[in-house]
C-alpha cells in the first residue's frame, strides 16, 4: 500500500504531464525517497495508480540506474568511475572504500549502513575524484578525507 504521503506526492505530479504514464519515473522516485527502494509490491501499487501494466513499469524501472529494485543501506555512496575521476585515481578511493566498508561495489554493509555503488560522471570533474553520499557531493577525495566523510553518516 502506498502511504498517504506517497500518494499525495505522486498525485501532485499529475497536473505536470498530460498522461499518467509520464509520472511513473517521478512516482518511483517518490516511493524510493520514502523507503529507500522500490519493492515488487510498491511497483504494483504504482502501476495500479497510474494504470500502467506492471511489466511495462518494471521495464522502465530496470532501464534507469537510479531506481533501486533491491533494498539498499541507510546511505548510498556513489563513487564516480568515469574518465576524469579515473585519471585522478578514483580506483584508489574505491579500493579504500571497499576495505573500510568490507563490501564490494553493489553490496551493502553488514550493519545496513552503507551501500557502495559505482556511478557515471557526476559532473564535478574539476573536483575529481568525487563521490556522492545520498544527496551530498564530495570532491577532491583522498583516503583520509573519505574516513572523515563516512563519520557524518550514521
Amino acid at each position: 500500500m502506498l502511504s498517504e504521503e506517497e500518494r499525495r506526492e505522486i498525485e501532485a505530479e499529475f497536473p505536470h504531464y498530460p498522461t499518467r504514464q509520464a509520472v511513473c519515473i517521478d512516482a518511483m522516485k517518490i516511493v524510493q525517497k520514502h523507503r529507500g527502494w522500490v519493492s515488487d509490491e510498491a511497483l504494483k501499487d504504482i502501476s495500479e495508480l497510474l494504470g500502467m501494466p506492471l511489466a511495462e513499469l518494471d521495464g522502465v524501472a530496470t532501464f534507469y540506474n537510479l531506481i533501486f529494485r533491491q533494498p539498499v543501506g541507510r546511505h548510498v555512496i556513489y563513487v564516480c568511475d568515469s574518465v576524469s575521476c579515473w585519471i585522478m585515481h578514483s580506483d584508489r578511493q574505491f579500493r579504500h572504500l571497499r576495505e573500510r566498508l568490507g563490501t564490494a561495489p553493489g553490496e551493502t554493509t553488514a550493519d545496513g549502513r552503507f551501500t557502495l555503488l559505482p556511478i557515471v560522471c557526476l559532473g564535478a570533474c574539476d573536483r575529481a575524484p568525487v563521490m556522492m553520499v545520498d544527496d551530498d557531493l564530495h570532491g577532491l577525495l583522498e583516503p583520509g578525507k573519505i574516513d572523515g566523510i563516512l563519520e557524518k553518516y550514521r
Binding site: S82, C121, G123, C125, D126
Partner: peptide, 11 residues
C-alpha cells in the same frame, strides 16, 4: 541531463 563524462558546465 549533462551526463557526458568530463562535462560540468550546465551545472
Amino acid at each position: 541531463d549533462e551526463m557526458e563524462p568530463g562535462t560540468f558546465k550546465d551545472r
